[in-house]
Design a protein around this nucleic acid. Structure first.
Length: 524
RNA sequence: GGGCCUGUAGCUCAAUGGUCAGAGCAGGGGACUCAUAAUCCCUUGGUUGGGGGUUCGAAUCCCUCCAGGCCUACCA
């Protein structure tokens, strides 16, 4: 068991600007990492960018800039977005980094020396214009390659192959005996069927004449390695695998295996489920060192048919500007159940934010502090009082909310964990109605009851602030400020009764101002 | 062609084979005034896509059909 919880995300390809799906995956992983911090556990969160490859090379040529410059420019957009969204990673995996290149080459050499790689000629149809070999998939109805491919010639080319098929039986057995390999479980069957159909090996090289923007094969310098042996290795190269002394990277044995590798459903088969697991196995990683793949779904675009002509991607930068990064983070976490798809809609973003955060949680804080200031000068007292409603809140509803939250978080069900928090806030609002502090305030004999109600509300809000921290770190901080709770968010503080007798609460300011529909909606 | 997922209230989604299929939003009615025109209570709304089957019992398991989505297709 590693000492430190390690999470990775897929690394994004630096050929286009980030969209909502990129933002979702990183926020999801950020929330998981922040939850570990909330528990006080060490965590290492790695994300990054995949900068090599043919598309980057082509796009750079088109713009007349060196590929590194093109990749860097695109990388900036991702870095800026993570900053805006509060994605707080510990390690940054950029595949053009020398440390990474070095590890990739060591791995290639090792596999080469052990006979896992071989060179073989392939004969096929090649499109000169598109600079790629064509398969039967590219043929049209009449069985020919259409004019979009330009001149098509039949030629022969030698390349390096990885003995993938040799590990097929191992992988099948591994899938069958390791329930937690793929989360959610319904993806296992899909992967298993794909593995059973593995027939050939994996081509892992491109001749430099066709692709120069990549990592050179150490044993055959006329070639660069292609995609998978470059990109996938980031998960271990930046975690300190085979690192030189003094590299400044983490100690590999403390991180590996990762608690989960967060990826989209589109890259489970074949990339991660097959190539990556077999690569690790071939490198000698034992079965208990193969990490869990947490496979998330996609955000589909509502009304896609209508806005197709406009290009229906959703720009997370624009959304964060319009609604704030907190609102966007909350929506992305609350409105999808991990693993499944969901429809993206700005209207739902506003609806959920307004209902659950502004009206429910935010207003709860506001009315509580306001009543405390108005009736009791903000001073908290906790008189012993036999009141069934208050007792239920403190001894049943609060602990139940915490345990439902924690359980859901542990199972990566962020939506369910947020639901538990919102439900608890709702119970607090109900308590206010039932106890009507504004009436108690008018009756001098009810002072104790008034104090007890306010104390219960303040404690509940303190707990809510803690639980919201992974998803809404800024809002959580501002709840604490208004409560004058001096500690950072820590899960151990969810124990009831931490606010001391005589504690003074702050002045209320809306933490979640209601969102209004913009004049020019993006996706509605 | 092969495979996977989904189909439950107007919308978004819940329900280890076991009370009467539940929440939130939206709709309708009412209450309250501490609060961000917020909150609270009551309420309308379902032949669980159709049809068979297994079972004492099915939204859940099996078969089949329908609809939608996704992956994959001797590969560079």
């Amino acid at each position: 068991m590693p000492d430190c919880t390690y999470y990775t995300t897929a690394i994004d390809y630096t050929n286009a600007a980030p969209h909502i799906g990129h933002a979702y995956e990183k926020v999801l992983t950020d929330v998981l990492a922040r939850f570990e911090k909330l528990k006080g556990e060490p965590v290492y969160f790695l994300t990054g960018v995949d900068q090599h490859g043919q598309k980057v090379q082509q796009s750079a040529e088109k713009e007349g800039v060196p590929p590194q410059e093109f990749a860097d420019r695109c990388t900036e957009k991702f870095l800026a977005l993570w900053k805006t969204l509060g994605v707080d990673y510990d390690g940054w995996a950029a595949t053009t980094h020398p440390v990474h290149k070095n590890v990739v080459q060591k791995i290639l050499q090792k596999l080469h020396d052990e006979g896992q790689l071989y060179k073989q000629a392939h004969r096929g149809f090649y499109s000169v214009r598109q600079e790629q070999f064509l398969t039967d998939k590219e043929r049209n109805e009449s069985g020919e390659f259409g004019p979009e491919w330009g001149q098509v010639v039949e030629l022969q080319e030698e390349n390096w192959y990885f003995r993938l098929a040799q590990h097929r039986e191992w992988l099948l057995h591994y899938i069958d005996t390791h329930d937690s390999f793929i989360v959610p479980t319904f993806r296992r069957a899909e992967l298993r069927n794909a593995v059973e159909k593995i027939s050939g090996d994996l081509c892992i090289s491109r001749p430099k004449s066709r692709l120069s923007w990549g990592i050179e094969l150490p044993f055959d310098t006329e070639y660069v390695t292609y995609v998978w042996f470059d990109a996938l290795i980031n998960y271990i190269s930046f975690a300190g695998y085979l690192a030189e002394p003094g590299s400044g990277l983490p100690e590999f044995s403390k991180l590996w295996p990762a608690r989960a590798q967060v990826i989209g459903k589109d890259i489970l088969i074949p990339a991660h489920g097959i190539y990556w697991s077999i690569m690790l196995h071939a490198l000698g990683f034992p079965d208990d060192q193969i990490p869990t793949l947490l496979v998330h779904g996609w955000w589909n675009i509502a009304g896609a048919k209508m806005s197709k002509s406009l290009g229906n991607t959703v720009d997370p930068v624009l959304l964060a500007e319009r609604y704030g990064s907190g609102a966007l983070r909350y929506y992305l976490m609350a409105d999808i159940s991990t693993g499944k798809d969901s429809d993206f809609s700005e209207e739902r973003l506003r609806m959920r934010f307004n209902d659950e955060l502004a009206n429910n949680v935010g207003n709860l804080l506001n009315r509580t502090l306001n009543m405390s200031q108005r009736y009791r000068s903000g001073i908290l007292r906790n008189p012993p009082l036999a009141d069934a409603g208050l007792q239920t809140l403190s001894s049943q509803e609060a602990p139940a909310a915490v345990s439902a939250y924690t359980e859901a978080m542990t199972e990566y069900r962020i939506d369910a964990s947020l639901h538990a928090v919102v439900q608890f806030a709702r119970a607090c609002n109900q308590l206010i109605e039932a106890s009507a502090p504004w009436k108690l305030a008018k009756d001098p004999t009810e002072t104790d009851r008034l104090d007890a109600v306010l104390y219960h509300l303040a404690e509940s809000l303190r707990i809510i602030g803690i639980l919201l921290a992974p998803v809404l770190p800024e809002a959580s901080h501002s709840i604490f400020e208004q409560l004058q709770w001096p500690h950072p968010a820590r899960l151990r503080d969810v124990v009831w009764g931490q606010l001391p007798e005589g504690h003074v609460l702050g002045i209320p300011t809306p933490v979640f101002p209601r969102l209004e529909a913009p004049a020019t909606p993006q996706t509605e």
